[in-house]
Simulated scan of single mutants.
Amino acid sequence: MEQKEGRKREYMLPDMDSTFRVFGAHLRTVDRDWSYPLHKHPIFEINLVLAGTQEFTVERTSYKQLPGDLFLLQPGEHHKSQVSEEEGMTYYCLHFDVDEPSFRELLGRSPRCFYPSDSDLTIAIRPVLDKLIELTAAHEAALQTEARMHILSALFELFAVLSGTLSKLNKDPAGLKSSEIASQVAVMLEQAVDQVGNHSDSDDKDTIASAAAAVGYSTSSVNRMFTRAFGVSPRQYLSTMMLKKAKLLLMDPELTVEDISTRLGYNNIAHFSRQFKRWTGESPSLFRARFHE
Rank of each mutant, 00 (worst) to 15 (best):
M1F: 09
E2V: 14
G6C: 08
G6R: 10
K8H: 12
Y11M: 11
P14M: 08
D15S: 11
D17N: 13
S18Q: 10
S18I: 15
S18D: 14
L27Q: 02
L27F: 15
T29R: 01
T29K: 09
R32E: 13
Y36H: 15
H41C: 06
E45N: 11
I46C: 06
I46T: 06
L48H: 11
L48T: 06
L50S: 09
A51Y: 03
G52P: 06
T57C: 13
T57S: 05
V58Y: 04
T61Y: 05
S62W: 08
S62A: 15
G68R: 07
G68W: 02
F71H: 03
Q74T: 03
P75C: 12
P75E: 00
S81I: 01
V83R: 06
E85N: 08
E86M: 05
E86K: 11
M89N: 13
M89L: 14
M89I: 01
T90H: 05
Y91V: 02
Y91D: 02
C93L: 12
L94D: 04
H95Q: 15
F96L: 07
D97L: 09
P101Q: 02
P101M: 12
F103K: 08
R104A: 04
R104H: 00
R104N: 14
L107G: 00
G108W: 03
D118W: 12
D120L: 15
L121Y: 06
I123W: 06
I123S: 04
P127M: 10
V128C: 11
V128M: 02
L129S: 02
L132N: 06
E134S: 15
L143S: 06
E146I: 12
R148G: 10
H150S: 13
F156K: 03
L158R: 02
A160P: 00
L162C: 05
S163C: 07
G164T: 04
G164V: 03
L166F: 06
N170H: 08
D172P: 00
L176Y: 07
S179M: 07
S179W: 00
E180W: 02
V187G: 03
Q191P: 00
Q191S: 08
A192R: 11
V193G: 03
G197D: 09
S202H: 00
S202N: 07
D203Y: 05
K205N: 11
K205I: 00
I208K: 04
S210W: 01
A212S: 15
A213E: 14
A213R: 10
Y217T: 13
Y217D: 05
V222A: 02
V222L: 02
R224L: 10
M225W: 15
R228M: 00
F230R: 05
V232Y: 09
K247F: 01
L248D: 11
L249P: 00
M251C: 13
D252N: 15
P253T: 08
E258T: 14
E258M: 04
T262S: 04
T262Q: 10
R263L: 14
R263N: 03
G265H: 07
N267E: 14
A270S: 14
Q275L: 12
F276N: 02
K277Q: 15
S283V: 11
P284I: 09
